[in-house]
């Protein structure tokens, strides 16, 4: 038996950097993206924001360019990170996070619902089943964010390069793809932002320990044992605790 109050390393430094890079650049993408004027099709934020951003960047063209450049940096860094850390970080992460079967999804849905309800004191006495490294809510959110991000990246690239490379009047399909890309892009933004609100709440309010872990890379064994029982068992088997 080891000392349960000890701190153990749970994350590599580069994963931490990646997380904060990801968070920061997405915030910028959100701010610039909502500033882009998109006609009648997209009405997300009140007019003052695009007006302000247009003024700040000196026009829509610059804003679009900034948004696109940021996005391409984001895509580029991710691609490189995935290429160089596929087996040691990315693959294990995906294994832990991805919810790919309906039964797994239902299981995670149950635990997430319990988690959320218990926030408000409902079904307080129902025990939450033991969780792995990521709990049900985290897994669902993670899966959604991964898929949405892929969609965002591809639709974004088309929205930016499509009109420049293709002659839209040649084939109506080009325009249709553009339009549906925009629909998908915006829908994904909605989904991701909605999820991120919960993510941020838990990190800031409910589980400041997680925040610490995302800063230092170390986590309290007691906390793991309490919140992520299955992971704790794993760690124990591996002899890490």
């Amino acid at each position: 038996m080891s000392d349960t109050s000890q701190m153990i390393p749970v994350r590599e430094k580069k994963s931490i950097y990646m997380h904060w890079f990801n968070a920061g650049i997405r915030l910028l993408l959100l701010l610039t993206g909502f500033g882009i004027i998109s006609g009648e099709l997209v009405r997300v934020v009140p007019a003052f924001w695009p007006e302000f951003m247009q003024g700040l960047f000196g026009g829509n063209d610059n804003l679009i360019l900034t948004h696109s450049v940021l996005a391409m940096i984001w895509i580029g860094v991710f691609v490189l990170f995935i290429l160089f850390n596929f087996t040691n970080i990315v693959l294990p992460f995906l294994k832990n996070v991805l919810v790919l079967t309906p039964s797994a999804a239902i299981k995670d849905m149950k635990s997430m619902t319990l988690n959320l309800l218990q926030l408000f004191g409902i079904m307080k006495n129902v025990p939450i089943p033991p969780q792995g490294r990521y709990n049900g809510a985290q897994r669902l959110l993670g899966t959604m964010i991964i898929f949405c991000s892929i969609i965002l990246a591809f639709t974004g690239l088309y929205l930016f390069f499509g009109p420049q490379v293709l002659n839209f009047s040649e084939n109506p399909l080009y325009g249709a793809i553009f339009r549906w890309s925009l629909v998908a892009h915006i829908s994904c933004v909605f989904l991701v932002v909605t999820g991120v609100i919960a993510h941020v709440y838990f990190a800031l309010v409910e589980e400041p320990e997680c925040m610490d872990a995302m800063k230092s890379g170390h986590a309290n064994v007691e906390f793991i044992k309490h919140h992520n029982a299955l992971w704790y068992d794993e760690l124990k088997q591996e002899g890490k605790v």
């Binding site: 009405r43 997300v44 934020v45 009140p46 007019a47 003052f48 695009p50 247009q54 829509n60």
Partner: peptide, 11 residues
């Protein structure tokens, strides 16, 4: 309704 404001006319 304030969403309608996002129909940008001002700039």
């Amino acid at each position: 309704p304030s969403q309608a404001l996002a129909r940008i006319n001002a700039p």
